[in-house]
Simulated assay, not measured.
Amino acid sequence: MKFIHTADLHLDREFEGLVQETPFQPYHILEKIIDLAISEAVEVVLFAGDNFHQSQPSIKIQNYFVEQLMRLQAYDIQAVIIFGNHDYYRESVYWIDFPDNVTVFKSESVSTQKLTLKTGETLAVSGFSYQHPHLSVNKIVDYPERDDACDYHIGLFHGEFSSESFAPANLTDMLAKDYNYWALGHIHLANQVADNVIYPGTPQGRNKKETTNLVVLGEMAPTGNLIYFRDLAEVHFETLTIDLSACQTLVQALTFIKSNLIDTATFYSLNLENYEAISDNLQEAVDNDELLEELRHGHVIVKLKLMPLSSENGEISKIVVPDLALPTIDLEQVYSLLPHKQEIRSVFEDADFQQEVQDNLTLFASQHFEFGGTLDEN
């Protein structure tokens, strides 16, 4: 049995930290996953939660999701879907019907669905979907033992090990079920916890922290599994540290920096170091964003930063401003200014949402605010 395992698509989430337009759309990753399923003639595609970034996705993105799933029908490929903490399931917000080739787990209680594949083999899939943004109970204990009446048994699970808020689990409980495979979601970096227990990570990174963009292409047999990881992402985030010690002029520096920007499908964060010979003029070009704008012709530059210069005589050659520490946002006060709806309240109480707001504001501040002589020079 051949399968694809993906998770954390977050289809309605944009790239983060960008201030320039790009021709890339992150949701296109789903089309690439469906293309792979068709080209590899798999029997089933497993979606391990957080298909959407929002608990109430737009009609447009809902329809896009279904349109892509329907492409599998002509090839007799099935799909199995659970919902995670971001897109926790509420039937009232959906404008779509899922196609007949799609099995959807809608309940927060663990259940098992049995599928007959195009090969004639039978597959049992056990799983559950979030109906709330948080789950503090161990759901693995509710998964049944392996169904020996089926050729294969897979566990679909969205959550964390040793977590308190996202279906806390442990590996021992999972392995005790004796499943052929555990398809995990929630962690955005790929992690093969055990031979048959895998987080593929998000297939398309949205920021510079999400660097492993993979899906699992697997082949299951009674004797064991063959597991392959495929990188289908259209773009990747990369942080480069560029040593300018060999550059004695600005011309040399610009030429050398550009020579390191080799891929138009990479979103770069650049750290420049050892630029003593051109420090004054380089500092000015960075401060007024001239260098940044020049490098953005033909490339996506998320951030440009000068690293501190070393000094042989012990004197400080430049003042290094530490990362800006922002105060915690009072989301209760923000909520008081909005319509008092339960949906809005649940979003504002979501720990992931609160952390994301704080992280994004910190990222914005680090990219857009500089210290220098202004009206307030204290």
Rank of each mutant, 00 (worst) to 15 (best):
Q252A: 02
P23M: 06
A167Q: 05
K118S: 12
N274R: 12
G201C: 05
L375F: 12
H10I: 01
H340S: 10
T223W: 00
N281S: 15
Y89C: 05
G84V: 08
I4N: 03
E40I: 04
Q20D: 13
F65T: 06
H158L: 02
G185C: 04
S245H: 08
D12N: 05
R230T: 02
T362Y: 03
W95T: 14
P203H: 10
E284T: 10
T211M: 05
N271H: 15
I38M: 09
L295A: 13
F353V: 15
N85R: 00
C150L: 10
M220C: 14
T255M: 00
Y94V: 01
Q78C: 03
A190S: 06
R345P: 01
K258Q: 12
P327S: 14
K32M: 04
Q358M: 15
S162C: 04
Y335E: 11
Y275R: 09
S163N: 09
P99T: 13
Q367K: 14
F83K: 06
F83S: 05
T119R: 12
F47G: 07
I262M: 14
E349M: 12
K208G: 09
S129N: 09
D12Q: 07
W182L: 11
K60F: 09
T241E: 12
L217S: 11
S165Y: 14
I96M: 05
D76T: 07
S109H: 09
D100N: 15
Q355F: 07
R90K: 15
I38N: 07
E343F: 13
G201D: 02
R230A: 10
S109M: 04
T172H: 01
K139I: 03
L254R: 12
P200C: 03
L304R: 11
T255P: 01
L282S: 13
S346A: 12
A176M: 13
L306K: 14
W182D: 07
T239K: 10
A74I: 05
L361W: 08
D151L: 00
I34R: 03
G84A: 10
I329M: 07
G298F: 01
L304S: 14
D280Q: 15
V251P: 03
